[in-house]
Simulated scan of single mutants.
Amino acid sequence: MIELASVIKDLREELERAVAAAEGEALRFELGTIELEVSVALERTGHAGAKVRFWVVESGADATVAAASTQRITLALQPTLAGERPAVFISGSPDKHER
């Protein structure tokens, strides 16, 4: 299993390589929303200051992780390049129907 943070870090590095490879090329692609679907297992530590860690289950992993202990999640990531105008964030009290 791989930590979810490592998966996102590796994705970021791949995208940075793709941006660098496009330097000077005539054909460019706009970077839009990236959807990443992974199967994750949760690990919860039981001591003071406990935290939850998400582990991405590798494809073809052995049966040590029971199917019942994994969940599929989809992450929608909106990448931006450093120095770009930041996105507008909405704030305020959540509506009762919002999650």
Rank of each mutant, 00 (worst) to 15 (best):
E16F: 01
R53L: 14
M1V: 12
L31M: 14
L11Q: 05
M1K: 01
V65G: 02
V88G: 09
E13M: 12
L42S: 09
T74N: 05
A68F: 00
E58C: 09
A41Y: 02
A41G: 11
F29P: 02
A87V: 12
I2C: 06
L81D: 07
V7N: 01
E98H: 06
V88D: 13
L27M: 12
L15A: 06
E98F: 04
G83Q: 06
V19I: 15
V7W: 00
G49M: 03
L31W: 06
E98R: 06
E43H: 08
S39A: 14
Q78Y: 11
E58L: 12
I73P: 01
I8G: 01
L75M: 12
E16C: 08
A20T: 11
I34C: 10
A18T: 11
V7M: 06
T45K: 07
E23D: 14
E58W: 00
A82K: 10
L27R: 12
D95Y: 04
I90P: 01
R17W: 04
E23H: 08
T33V: 13
R72Y: 04
L75I: 09
E58Y: 00
R99L: 15
G60Y: 01
S69H: 03
H97P: 00
A68V: 11
I90C: 11
R44A: 13
I8M: 06
A82H: 05
R53N: 13
R28P: 01
P79T: 07
A26K: 11
P79Q: 07
G24M: 07
E16Q: 12
E16H: 02
Q71P: 00
S39T: 11
L15G: 02
A22T: 10
K9H: 11
A5N: 11
A67N: 05
A48Y: 03
A63C: 06
S6M: 08
I34W: 02
L77H: 02
A18S: 14
V52N: 05
P79S: 09
R44F: 08
I2L: 13
A68Y: 00
E84V: 03
V19S: 07
S91E: 14
R44C: 11
L11D: 02
V65E: 06
R44M: 13
K9I: 10
I73H: 01
S69M: 04
T80C: 08
E30H: 10
A21N: 11
E23T: 12
A76L: 09
K96M: 14
Q78V: 14
V57M: 04
L27Q: 13
V52K: 03
H47W: 09
I73G: 03
A22W: 00
A76S: 14
I34K: 02
L81N: 08
S39K: 07
E14V: 12
F89L: 15
E14R: 12
A41V: 10
A48P: 09
I90Y: 07
G32Q: 09
S69Q: 10
G83Y: 02
G92F: 02
S93E: 15
V65A: 09
D10T: 08
G60Q: 08
L81Q: 13
S39V: 07
V7L: 13
A41I: 02
A67F: 01
G92T: 06
V7Q: 04
S6E: 14
A18D: 14
L75H: 03
R53K: 13
L11C: 06
E37H: 01
T64C: 03
A66N: 03
E43G: 09
E84F: 01
S6L: 10
